[in-house]
Design a protein around this nucleic acid. Sequence first.
DNA 1: CTCCGACAATTGCAGCAGCATTACCCGATC
DNA 2: GATCGGGTAATGCTGCTGCAATTGTCGGAG
Lengths: 223, 223
Amino acid sequence: MRILLIEDERELAAALSVALGKHGIVIDHTMRLEDAVELTCQNVYDAILLDRRLPDGEGLTFIPQLRRTGSDTPIIVLTARNEPMERVEGLDLGADDSLGKPFLVEELMARLRAVLRRPATVAELQIIVGRMVIDPLHLSVTVEATPLNLSRRELLVLAALARRKDKTVLRSTLEAAVYNYEEEIQSNALDAHISRLRKRLVEAGAGVAIHNIRGVGYLLREE
Amino acid sequence: MRILLIEDERELAAALSVALGKHGIVIDHTMRLEDAVELTCQNVYDAILLDRRLPDGEGLTFIPQLRRTGSDTPIIVLTARNEPMERVEGLDLGADDSLGKPFLVEELMARLRAVLRRPATVAELQIIVGRMVIDPLHLSVTVEATPLNLSRRELLVLAALARRKDKTVLRSTLEAAVYNYEEEIQSNALDAHISRLRKRLVEAGAGVAIHNIRGVGYLLREE
DNA sequence: CTCCGACAATTGCAGCAGCATTACCCGATC
DNA sequence: GATCGGGTAATGCTGCTGCAATTGTCGGAG
């Protein structure tokens, strides 16, 4: 197992090198982002440990850089102190996990194991369909970079359809995506949402159309 | 997006339900492990939030239980206080992430997003025959990636035949596949469906043919 | 080979289930 | 109290689907 450590504190790097070495992990260490990019081109790493504060810039900028090369190597971001929001930023940029310093080597190992056993991360940060970009995790939609104002339920319907673009989505699946058990519906509420959603998509020129499959469900296609 | 929350603190559960609800997440909540197992059998969740201390036992026991059913639904363990070793135990039992209480909803959301970014689970089982791909779960058929518009009954007939490709399917078997007990038919409705189905299959160039076995039933073959 | 009966294929038609749309109103939120 | 989201219900419409009449096909008996 080979890991890339991007970290400017020499002592921490040395300590990790020893500690992880005992677990049979080989560490390549660099202190500079610039070198990190090159190293990832030349080697295949099983995971990357990334510090945020680095001499030549903010560590997080490395994440999109790496992802753009098509790599899906797991990244664990190391953040200073126990700052939740720092961790949030890393995760939302495409990191797979985030850990505040100081940390137990035990926990780092456990997080490494967790991250390594999951199938390669294919970032579904956005769904692009027609002229729209849907971010289902942040519940936002833009058409040609201008935000589209949808209500929460409309957005849930849209996201559920867009995830299965060009494929049928069962009516029951849509209902489950929008409603939980407590909020059972007894009317055509879903139909109403579809209708309103269609209207807005047309107004916005979203470049998609929602088709109905009678007796089955719905389907979203580009037009 | 649908999530199962296994947690015995009512207040936390209620708060999360509201907070995540605003992010468009539907929460099913239970306080007992026993119920959790049943719920996961009946529903497909995008993720599971699991508390460790539960009235009917240690939450972590749920993880192997779930995994044994073949499910790979992401699990995030919520641990009491900020105890690194508690988090380690959860991760090593197969959880995907672990978060100490108390936590910011923001961080939980970010970790959810990170965990959900993984490729869509469950390889859908499909029937491939001729140039067609039939997805009986979603009631859809595609010919060379372009969706084929069949009515519900036509689709049921097709799926029943395709499942037993190259083998005769009794007329009575087909009827059972398309109609339930309440809806008995007294005419050649089935024949009519076969006829219309054949027409559509030819039009679409599906690469299959439905043959009749006189007095017995039908049979689907590639051509 | 021919004829005949039984079974199968096809198609128009009518009824109706399911869908689309709109207006309305309640409740939550600010 | 103004505004927005969203559930409900009424209305009109579409096209699926069961039915039946007609035509076509198979296979055995003579």
